[in-house]
């Protein structure tokens, strides 16, 4: 007999999809968010903002887990994460 317990509610766990929002004009390019993202999901973008800094962007194909650490560590209130638009869970 299997000792494996069956969950009472059998709903499929759904993974939320997250995305990062950047306010490019606020960024001062310190790269804290890029360095300390636990998923290493960010990189400098190729575009300069008007002050000459390269704001971060999500790496193609990388997964943001929505931990929001980038927002906490950003000294310039320039980045945060949130549920992906259209992800109405």
């Amino acid at each position: 007999m299997s000792t494996w317990r069956k969950p009472l509610t059998k709903a499929e766990p759904v993974a939320r999809r997250w995305c990062v929002h950047v306010l490019p004009e606020r960024c001062k390019g310190c790269s804290f968010c890029i360095e300390f993202c636990p998923r290493k999901a960010l990189e400098s973008s190729s575009q300069l903002n008007s002050k000459g800094y390269r704001p971060p962007r999500l790496i193609e194909g990388a997964t943001c887990v929505g931990c929001n650490f980038c927002a906490m560590i950003c000294p310039d209130f320039a980045i945060y994460s949130g549920p992906e638009v259209g992800d109405g869970k």
Binding site: H21, L23, E25, R26, K28, G29, C30, F32, K51, Y53, A71, C74, P75, D76, F77, A78, Y80, G82
Partner: peptide, 23 residues
């Protein structure tokens, strides 16, 4: 930004240097 309702956004970007921890 989600924190904008608690900061004076008309004064942002602030004067602190890039990488300064005060922010």
């Amino acid at each position: 930004h989600p924190i904008d309702d608690l900061i004076r956004t008309d004064r942002i970007p602030h004067i602190w240097c890039s990488g300064c921890g005060i922010g």
